[in-house]
Computed example of a mutant assay.
Amino acid sequence: MYKHLLHNSSELPPKDNHEQLIVEEIELLMIDLGRLNLSEFDRKECKQQIAKAAQEWGLFQVVGHGISKDILDKIRLEQINLFRKPFHEKINSKKLSSLAGNYIWGTPSATCLGQLSWIESFHIPLGDFLSSTNLTSLSSTIGQLSMEMFELANLLAKILDKKLGHHKPNFFKESCSPFNCYLRMNRYPPCPMPRGMFGLVPHTDSNFLTILLQDHQIGGLQFVKDGKWVTVKLNSESLIVIIGDLFQARSNDTYRSIEHRVITNELKERFSTSYFLCPSYETIINSCVEPSVYRKFSFQEYKKQVQEDVKTFGYKVGLSRFR
């Protein structure tokens, strides 16, 4: 499927791996969510930190988030065991019936090498998955993690929304449910031809919030800060929170949906797990601030437009379509 992309060297983008590797490494703002359970001063300051990070950076890291180390360690082990299975099992196995249809390698829509992500993943719509009766150690772990991630994502979303002055305190309770969200387990294989290749091509996320569990030992996440790419310094104790397109639109550009990417590694593989907080397809996204930067649109309309643009142009156009 990718043979013509890999063998046509003229399609390599005008960049090399050195450009990806020499960018500055920075440590993200660390927020201790445990402070939300302390004094009124601590709660107020913690919430202010969350809103400021979303506004100035578009991503931040959290500790004291309430998700147990046991479940995070367990999903890492289950994920590694899953990706170690032979290719034919990952796409056909009856034991993986609730996952096999969600297995992806690379970028199926790629029309040139610059659009190809060097990644394999299981992108899991949790509505179907949580309704499945196929109980295994893996499915049980995914189910437990996704529910805990949902609670954390909702907590952060409510804090961010309240800081905007929105007067719909039940918006996320009514529009987002565990069954609307997605979990994605990623493996970035060693890349023998790293020049011009990304583990995950530059993009923004099309949801409200993403919660990312990074690899403990292998870095690679980069994002745009002040107009240049920077590398996220590894921290084995934290989770990373990334603002998505829907929150940028709802906040009327107060919060930033940050462009990010993952670089390739020539020798080592890397694993990560991402949780995506999404609303129902019918949910209308609009700002309570006037004049609004964006017109009203539904989540379904947004996803459809993104898919059409990727199919037509090979890349996501995103929020600019809805100004």
Rank of each mutant, 00 (worst) to 15 (best):
E120A: 03
L96M: 13
G314R: 05
L5S: 11
L319Y: 06
Q115M: 05
P291E: 11
D309P: 12
F87L: 15
R76P: 00
L72M: 09
Q222L: 03
L145K: 05
M185S: 12
E56L: 09
I285T: 11
T312F: 14
S117P: 05
S9R: 14
S140P: 00
Y294I: 03
F208A: 04
L164G: 02
G106F: 03
P169M: 05
I119Q: 14
Q300D: 14
S292L: 00
Q217L: 07
L145F: 11
H7Y: 12
L5K: 13
D226R: 12
T136A: 11
Q79I: 04
K268M: 08
V306N: 13
L82R: 12
Y255R: 02
G106D: 04
G58D: 12
L126G: 07
H123E: 10
M149C: 06
N92E: 13
G220S: 06
K95P: 00
W105K: 14
E78S: 08
G196W: 05
G114A: 15
G127C: 09
F122R: 04
S146D: 00
N134M: 09
F179R: 14
E237Q: 15
L209F: 02
R256M: 08
F129E: 06
Q307H: 13
L29N: 12
R84A: 13
V262D: 05
L82N: 14
L152I: 01
T312C: 12
P190V: 04
P169L: 08
F179L: 14
K225E: 05
R35S: 09
L319A: 06
I31R: 06
I142P: 04
M30H: 10
L183P: 04
N170R: 13
H203S: 09
P125R: 11
G64C: 04
E282M: 04
P86T: 11
S117E: 09
R195F: 07
E19N: 06
D161W: 11
C288W: 07
L82C: 13
G66P: 05
I124H: 07
Q307P: 09
Q49D: 12
L72I: 10
I91P: 00
G106H: 07
E174G: 00
N265V: 01
L21A: 02
A110N: 10
I91K: 14
R261Q: 12
L160S: 05
K158Y: 03
L164K: 06
H88P: 07
F271C: 03
T141L: 02
T254H: 06
C176D: 03
Q79M: 14
S117V: 12
I211P: 02
